[in-house]
Nucleic acid binder design. Sequence first.
DNA 1: CCGGATCCGGTCTGATACTG
DNA 2: CAGTATCAGACCGGATCCGG
Lengths: 125, 125
Amino acid sequence: MAKQNQSSEKFKRSSCPVASTLDIIGDKWTLLVVRDLFAGKRTYSEFQGSPEKIPTNILADRLKRLAEYEIVVKKPYQHHPVRYEYLLTAKGKDLGPVLMTMVQWGEKHLPGTKAQIIPAKEAKP
Amino acid sequence: MAKQNQSSEKFKRSSCPVASTLDIIGDKWTLLVVRDLFAGKRTYSEFQGSPEKIPTNILADRLKRLAEYEIVVKKPYQHHPVRYEYLLTAKGKDLGPVLMTMVQWGEKHLPGTKAQIIPAKEAKP
DNA sequence: CCGGATCCGGTCTGATACTG
DNA sequence: CAGTATCAGACCGGATCCGG
């Protein structure tokens, strides 16, 4: 039975929107996956390829939860060896501003960080 | 020596601003404390009084970390029985937009949540 | 009393190995 | 490639204890 160890069932339903939102994205990895989705990554191995090196079991769990919360949809895009891709839903895309403000805060206050998720329009010096 | 159990030393220094920011605020409790600060709470017991019931050791640890990151400052405001208050720094106040976007996302996508930290200007439908 | 520190059981993380 | 299984150790969370 294995008491669903890292499974996905974490409903707390606080009345505060901040607390409720944090119940969903309040951990180190979830938003990193969302960031990768915004960056155009779509497959499991692309997520694994990110420099933060998310553990494979954590990645699987987060993707499952993101799908349950309808922040992403998982769909097969090839059948022979079955391949899946994960895409942001409208709800997931609405997390953009959250990511954005975090990027701005990080760039302003944390030295040595530079955004790469927003290509920007070639502001070449 | 007690190998600093829940102590504060969690530097990962990723180059991505999202990852770096998440190393600081990427957990369930930290932003909740920041939310309380924005809501005007300043003392240890006021934080403990929040409906989410943060455990005392977690609260102490988060406040210590927030102070180390210079997101808050801790200062005594009374001496007889010494009492402390925690105040947001400019860096901490800059987290406002992050909180804001999370509130907006939560209110839009999570039913049954209602903000209480931002009075809002009566944008009645 | 208030602001924390300590203890301890249970949960989750994270590295690696393994499977379809 | 896309995960699942396993397992030690880190971390959380509740309760309790302590210093001023």
